[in-house]
Design a binder for these strands. Sequence first.
DNA 1: AACTATAGCAACCGCAAGGCT
DNA 2: TAGCCTTGCGGTTGCTATAGT
Length: 321
Amino acid sequence: MGRSPCCDDSNLKKGPWTPEEDQKLVDYINKNGIGSWKSLPKLACLNRCGKSCRLRWTNYLRPDIKRGKFSEDEERLIINLHSVLGNRWSRISAHLPGRTDNEIKNFWNTHIRKKLLQMGIDPNTHKPRTDLNHLLTFSQLLCAPQIGNSLNLNSWDTALKLQADHAVQLAKLKLLLQVINSNTVLLPYTESTPAAALLGSQNHYQFEGLGNGIISTPGPTPLPPLNESQGFENSWASLDVHDKGLSGYFDFETGNSLPALVSGSPETSGIDNNQVETEANTNNSSIFKTWDKLMDDEASASYWKDILAMTSPLPSSPISW
DNA sequence: AACTATAGCAACCGCAAGGCT
DNA sequence: TAGCCTTGCGGTTGCTATAGT
């Protein structure tokens, strides 16, 4: 695989695009479509390489690009997606219509990353930083309402939500630990009952995790209120596991919800797509749908694989994902 | 008002994947 | 099947605007 020769010509212009160049590019594409980026600059009378034209079009000139500040929902979605997908910006951007990978990447690096660091959360792992100074700082903030009063309310709100996001990660891990360490027999994988193969014959698990915010339980057994010894002050999280897989909704005070924390892709989890779709419609949440779609791809499988790897020893019989 | 530091973002660079011949 | 070519992606750079001194 050789290097692309498209930008070898040193006579080609680089740097910021002028309005005239933009106009030429837009006019050409509107008239002729994109075709080959390689040949486009010549045809459009632009002294640029095809790569530069493609970048300018996809990141700036495309008509469906959404400009302006990222909303709270978008921000939360980016954080959730990043916790699963990592720095795969193009994949993340696929879940945010009108946003480009470059824009999301920049937003992450300039805003979210700093925010998470300030809150003592490692932006790479989405886990609390082990740096004691940071933990101290954050706990001092939690215990100092007079400081909290001086904070921007939106930032504080976001901080709590981010902590709640982390609770979901912890909850997932804890659930798997419980499943693995329980008396549950890990049945061999079967086409008809893949979820049962993972979860065993019991059809209902419950547990609590750390965090702020609430995961409600749509399952048959309501959660008892937790006391302070069970986690962070006034905070708890729980998940609910049915025989169809894992489920749970993360309710922020905004009413937004996270989708079911399903165990793998539909073809391996045994979850009825129609049922999932129904739940998505019921919640009427774009974030739910996005998460749902996300869980359909291979990322979820590798994500759970990673968790299982962390929670070994595993039974000798392999589990299919 | 001038200078410096920092933040935000557009654009570039280089690698890798995948299509085509 | 191998090699070339194009496109896509993620990391990084560097310019511009703004804030701080």
